[in-house]
């Protein structure tokens, strides 16, 4: 499965993953072509997009988004670009970020 379940949603072309936070506070940003992702990463991204659509629906009914509790947690922002040129921005607390996608935004030594 490489596409979101909703047939009306355009295919994903690229994704930019930004990571913030952590004890070090090192900001990381990396861009990836959807086609270059592994099957597991494509599936995980599809699930995140589906969950975000569901979450937006929940929020429109008044449910607030929940950040990860505590301090020094990572937080992620996914910018998903579709084939029609549209962009969807998804904010994820660390606990909601699939492990297979975390490796797409790892810091490197300057």
């Amino acid at each position: 499965m490489t596409e979101p379940a909703d047939p009306a949603r355009p295919a994903v072309r690229r994704v930019r993953i930004e990571r913030r936070g952590g004890l070090a506070g090192l900001a990381v940003s990396a861009e990836h072509d959807f086609a270059a992702l592994s099957a597991a990463q494509q599936q995980a991204l599809g699930r995140v997009i589906e969950a975000a659509a569901s979450d937006r629906s929940a929020r429109s009914r008044g449910a607030p988004p929940g950040p990860a509790p505590g301090a020094d947690r990572f937080s992620y922002r996914l910018r998903v670009e579709d084939a029609a040129g549209g962009e969807q921005v998804i904010d994820l607390p660390e606990d909601a970020m699939p492990s297979v996608l975390e490796s797409l935004a790892k810091p490197a030594l300057p």
Binding site: G22, A24, A71, D72, F74
Partner: peptide, 13 residues
């Protein structure tokens, strides 16, 4: 915690 995890945190408890 996790693999190659480059962080430490307080999770509220």
């Amino acid at each position: 915690y996790a693999r190659n995890y480059d962080n430490a945190f307080w999770n509220g408890s």
